[in-house]
Amino acid sequence: MFTLYKKELAYYLNNSIGYIVIILFAIFANFLYVKDIFVVGSASMRPFFNILPWLLMVFVPALCMRSIAEEKRTNTIELLLTLPVSETQVVLAKYLALLTLTGVSFVLTMGLPVSLFFLTKSNLSNLYIPEILVGYVGSILIASAFISLSLFFSSKTKNQVVAFLSSAVILFFLIIFSSDFASSVLPKALQDRLNYLSPVYHLQNFIKGLVDLRSLFYFLSFTVAFLFMTIIELEKRE
């Protein structure tokens, strides 16, 4: 599986597309936080983690869209699946390579907490580092869920644009389930249930620095469910 993982990673690293997507993500993530840093008036990374799902909604499908759709279009999927590898290995290798790339793009935002640390240090105020670390763990978990969903949609089609749009639209709806907009439009009973389905709702605990096992279980089961469906989709060859 390591060979497959290396091959997937090499595609993005030997190709300008991978760099462009990662750098654009880093630019937007840094800019959207920094533009309001002095307006907010508190030394917290919470606004950054709050905007992350919206950025990931575009960034993750853009990164994942070619992953299986392109293999299907060029029929290299037949080549791959007639080598002695299982569908599970193929899907896991792709998932781990995409998670690694997302992790790299998160590293490019590490300048923010470091700058904030030095800014607050001179004001004699405190930046609570564990809260930030847990925030990053939550961000990795939400990215992992988004990657598995986008991989699934990439396995459903031969067209990268269709894969991108379908993943982005579904992620958009999952995000707005827990937004103020949904609570103002939907009946409360329904909104409460939909809210629980939203990854943003579960991310909130991590943003506050809390590792809630229910949220952890939500993200892990979300990821496993979509990876499993992707494997099933690859096994269906007709």
Binding site: K7, T74, N75, T76, E78, T82, P84, V85, S86
Partner: peptide
Amino acid sequence: RIAILKMIGYLPENNPLY
């Protein structure tokens, strides 16, 4: 499948390659 594919070399139609 995995055991069988270890003993087969396959060149698919239209030769898809990376």
